[in-house]
Design a protein around this nucleic acid. Sequence first.
DNA 1: ATATTTTTTGCGGGAACCCGCAATCGCGCG
DNA 2: CGCGCGATTGCGGGTTCCCGCAAAAAATAT
Lengths: 234, 234
Amino acid sequence: MKILVVEDDQFHARYVLDAISEELPEVTEIAHAINRDEAEDEARAGEFEAIVMDLQMEHGNGIDAARAIWAHNPQTRILFWSNYADEAYLRGISQIVPEASAYGYVLKTATRDRLKLALRAVLFEGQIMISRELYQYQRQGQPSSALDKSEYAVLLDLALGLQDKMIAERQNLSLRTVQNRLQSLYDKLGIDEEDGPALNKRVRALNCAIRKKALNLQTLESAEAEYQRWCESQ
Amino acid sequence: MKILVVEDDQFHARYVLDAISEELPEVTEIAHAINRDEAEDEARAGEFEAIVMDLQMEHGNGIDAARAIWAHNPQTRILFWSNYADEAYLRGISQIVPEASAYGYVLKTATRDRLKLALRAVLFEGQIMISRELYQYQRQGQPSSALDKSEYAVLLDLALGLQDKMIAERQNLSLRTVQNRLQSLYDKLGIDEEDGPALNKRVRALNCAIRKKALNLQTLESAEAEYQRWCESQ
DNA sequence: ATATTTTTTGCGGGAACCCGCAATCGCGCG
DNA sequence: CGCGCGATTGCGGGTTCCCGCAAAAAATAT
C-alpha cells in the first residue's frame, strides 16, 4: 500500500508519518508533498491509493488539490487533517468527493489514537469518518439554522459580491426568489435579532458567515476561481 | 530573565522552547501557556519581561492577549510568532503596541536561525524586528494602494456591516466624507477595474480585503467586540 | 499675505436592495 | 379530482447606496 502525505508544516508532517508507520505496517511506500503542486504531481506519478491531506497550506489549499487528484483518480482515499473545524471545509469537501471514494476529516487537536484510528478506518478500510465537532454541520435533518444547499450557493454568490440579478442568472432563479433566499439567509445567520441600530444586511451576512465559519478564506478563493471560469464560459 | 511562551500547538511550542534555551542562556525561567486566559493569568502572576506569542489559538487570539498584557505592564517585550503574513495582524499589533515596549513579528516558516535572531533582538535587546514579508505593509510612504489609518478605520466599520450614517457618527465625519472614504477604499482594493458585470461594492470590498489579508477572522472578532463596547457606551 | 491645491461637505438623482402583499405554480393527500 | 400548503414569482414603494457636481473649508505652496 502506498500513501502520500501532503503537509507543509514539518512538525505535523513528521507526526503523521510516524503515526502511519506505527499504525499501518501494511504501507510499503510513503511519499511527502509540501504544497498543492507537489501533491498533484506526486499523485499523478505515483498512483497512490491513500492520501493524508492538510487543508491549510502556504501555496494552494488542500480542497483544490483534492479535487484535482480525485478528477484524475476517483478511488483515491483521502483523509483530511486540519487545524480548524470550519463548516466551510466540510461543505467544500462534500461538494467534490466522488461516489467511488472514501474520505475522512480529523482535527489536528485529536489524540494520537484518534488519528491512528482514522488512518486505519479511512485509508485502509475505506470507511467514511468525520470528526464529531464537524458532523453537526452535515446533518440536514433540522431545517432551522442549517443552510440547505441552495441557500449555501446563494451565500457563496453573495460573498463574491454579485448582485441579485446576477445571482438569479447563475442559479436559474427569478430575482424575487433570490431575494427570498437572501431573506432566509439573513434569518438563519441571525442578522435582524441583533440589538443596536440597523445594519447593511449583505455585508453583515458575509461577516456573520465568516465568524460562524460557514465561509473562510479558502472558500472565498475557490468560489472566486469558479466564478471567473463561469464568467468566461458565458 | 523570565520568558513566557504562549502557543497552543505542542510541536511549535517545543520548537520555540528549545530555541530559547539554546539561544538565550540568560533565561532563568520559562513558562508555557496554551490559550489566552492562561497567558493573561501567567503574565499577571509572573511579571515576565519577555513573551513569545502565537497569534492563532483555539481559544482567544494573540492580539487580544497582548493588549491585555500590555495594559497591565507596558514594558513587556513580545515576539509574535505566526503562520501567516497578514497585513491585518500587523495593523492590529501596531494599534496596541505601547511606546515603552519592543516587539517583533516572525513567521513560523522562518529558519531556526532567524527565529533565534529575533528572540535575541526583540526579547533580550529590546529591538523592533519585523519580518520582511510584512514590512511592506508598514511603509506609509507611497499613498497609492496602501490604506491610511482613516481608510482602515472605515474599512473595519464597513466590514462589521455598519451603514454610512453610523460610520459617520463613529468616525466623526460627515456622511459624504464617509462615502468619499469608501470610494477610495473601492479604488485601492481594485474593485472597479475587474472585468465582468458590476458588483455590490460593499460586499466586494469586504471580500477583497479578506483575500488580500487586510482583514482576517481575528480582526473581525476584535472589531466586533470593540463595536459592542462602543454601542453600550452610547 | 495671497494663490493654489486638496479635503470636506451638501445636494440630487439613478440604481440596487429589502420586503410586504397577492397571485400563481407545484405537488402530495384524502 | 379537488383541496390545501408551501415555494415561486411579479409588483410597488421606502430605504440605502453610489457618485457627479460644485461650493466651502482646510492645508500647502509661492
